[in-house]
């Protein structure tokens, strides 16, 4: 089985983003970028499937500007076998990304596609579910455990009420949650090796996908700030303030 892993280049999770003064978006120049943390978990899971002999090949795919190659190289250094860049600038909306990924899937014929459940910039939480819909494949979203058993895939999903188990007919689309695994770091030798692994490039045109946006971003602003608080020094003082000042207990 071949596993396809779509990965996204995003602002590093540890960086506090700043809204641009002209309110057109957030400041992305000169900020540290990294692989979306959920995508790291997706890559890790795919590599483990290959190490377990369940998968033969792991292919990472990114949709985005040419700098997304760095993210693909990171995926290759973690252990993916090959990479595909679908070059677009800017990154399109989730529906268009899902259409591009569908086109890639139709060329590659993977037995499974593993994505992150959410990109920490757009926070859309859509792409995998859309891709599964377009392909008419089964979907296991927010997955914290995954087992391949012949032509079926057993997953545990993190849902609002706790955990849910479902069995999917392969081929399946999986979106991963935080507790599925602990992604490995790429070692220096593997980073060197990754530079020689194959990376092919496509465009939306050669995949025959229209990526024109449906949404228009009118403005991006800072959220309302909270007023400064006060420090208390005892439980009695805290209880008094909650009861008589804030009136919340």
């Amino acid at each position: 089985m071949k596993v396809l892993v779509p990965i996204k280049r995003v602002i590093d999770a540890n960086i506090k983003v700043r809204v641009k003064a002209d309110h057109s978006g957030v400041e992305l120049s000169n900020v540290k970028m990294a692989m979306n943390p959920f995508c790291e978990i997706a890559v890790e899971e795919a590599i483990r499937l290959r190490e377990a002999g369940t998968a033969e090949e792991v292919v990472v795919v990114a949709v985005g500007p040419s700098q997304s190659q760095e993210t693909l190289r990171t995926g290759l250094a973690m252990g993916a076998d090959r990479a595909i860049l679908v070059e677009t600038d800017p990154i399109p909306e989730p529906l268009a990304i899902a259409k591009l990924l569908k086109a890639v899937a139709e060329k590659e014929n993977p037995g499974m596609i593993i994505l992150g459940k959410q990109a920490i910039d757009g926070d859309n939480n859509q792409t995998g579910q859309m891709l599964a819909g377009l392909l008419n494949w089964s979907i296991g979203s927010f997955v914290s455990n995954l087992e391949v058993a012949g032509s079926s895939v057993k997953v545990t999903r993190e849902v609002d009420g706790g955990l849910e188990n479902i069995e999917l007919v392969a081929p399946a689309v999986i979106t991963v949650d935080l507790r599925l695994n602990e992604p490995r770091y790429a070692s220096l030798p593997n980073i060197m090796k990754a530079k020689k692994k194959p990376l092919e490039t496509h465009t939306p045109e050669d995949l025959g996908v229209d990526v024109s946006p449906r949404l228009e971003v009118l403005q991006v602003v800072e959220p309302a700030a909270r007023a400064a608080g006060v420090l208390v020094t005892s439980a009695d003082e805290l209880v008094d303030k909650l009861r008589n000042e804030a009136k919340v207990i």
Binding site: I120, G122, D123, E216, L218, V220, P223
Partner: peptide
Amino acid sequence: QQISDISGIESPDTFVRPIYAGNAMATVR
């Protein structure tokens, strides 16, 4: 193209939603 997790409605086609972990609020049409 779905609009995810809206926290405000400006008009029937324009919505406010948090992005970047709520560090920015986007108004999208």
